[in-house]
Design a protein around this nucleic acid. Structure first.
Length: 271
DNA sequence: CAACGGACCTGCCTGC
DNA sequence: TGCAGGCAGGTCCGTT
């Protein structure tokens, strides 16, 4: 489900509800996420206040007094703000209950996500330490992509989805950005020139920013902190449009598999 | 190093 | 109607 725009939408949605509030209860109904929820999380968080909510790539960072809760939504995770006594639905695995009757509820059917605690600065955590630059901040541009692509034979789509190269570019937005840049997704990363990488970097930033504006993309089940869907799907140019005409040239969109992922492109526009 | 496949899970859709 | 199979927005890890 969530790519960077969905995670940012979630961050913006939950931050005003929980920032500055203290934990009054932690309920772990199902600790078996990608990695186990720390068994002592409840004790660790007891009476701690949230200082703020940040995002690094697709990780949400809930800064508490004394450490940071690192959260990832995996493929199917979501956070919602609800009443603490609202009966949990299936797959509502964890509640963080705050003073004032605010409950942050973690829901994740596939359990590919995680909730981890670190007392160190989270940037040093092994999951975050090797991540590439943020696509919506300085340090990400065509020169960066061109430099890292040198000598690499992998498909450019797999290359831009590598979190060591740039964070937050998942399958939907990789397809969309390559379409907007006119680059064939299977082209070898090391055989693309600087000018085209400058264009691609711009399109990646642009498509992610535009999706955040729309509240993220809802394909099947993404909802924000209030349970409302995102609206960016209405703007997707190639993703999930196999066989339909290209909006630019009318040629049918093609669907292939690249690196085990569904890959959509326009054979007329992308080379 | 780079590249690839498998692994982790449930839910939903398709086709027989 | 039931059931098997395939697919899904992520990404880590082990093997070539």
């Amino acid at each position: 489900m969530p790519e960077l725009p969905e995670v940012e939408t979630t961050r913006r949605g939950i931050a005003p509800h929980i920032t500055g509030r203290r934990i009054v209860d932690v309920r772990v109904r199902e600790p078996r996420l990608r990695w186990p929820v720390p068994p002592d999380l409840s004790a660790t968080l007891a009476a701690c206040a949230v200082l703020g909510v940040r995002r690094r790539g697709k990780y949400l960072l809930l800064d508490f007094e004394g450490g940071t809760l690192i959260a990832h939504l995996g493929m199917s995770g979501s956070f919602r703000i609800c009443e603490p006594n609202l009966p949990p639905r299936r797959h509502d695995h964890v509640d963080l209950v705050f003073e004032g009757g605010i409950c942050l509820r973690y829901h994740d059917p596939r359990r590919f996500g995680c909730l981890l605690w670190t007392a160190e600065p989270p940037a040093q955590h092994p999951l975050l330490a090797e991540l590439g630059p943020e696509p919506l901040e300085g340090g990400f541009d065509g020169a960066h992509l061109h430099r890292l692509a040198a000598g690499r034979n992998t498909a450019v789509k797999s290359f831009i989805m590598d979190s060591h190269v740039v964070v937050g570019v998942g399958n939907i937005y990789a397809n969309e950005a390559l379409f907007l840049a006119g680059i064939h997704p299977g082209r070898a990363a090391g055989k693309i020139g600087l000018a085209r990488y400058r264009n691609l970097a711009g399109r990646i930033s642009e498509v992610l920013a535009a999706s955040i504006e729309q509240g993220g993309t809802t394909l099947r089940d993404f909802v924000n902190e209030s349970g409302a869907p995102g609206y960016f799907k209405q703007v997707l140019r190639v993703y999930d449009r196999g066989g339909e005409p290209c909006l630019a040239c009318g040629v049918p969109i093609r669907c292939i598999r690249l690196g085990q992922r569904a890959t959509y492109y326009c054979p007329g526009c992308q080379h």
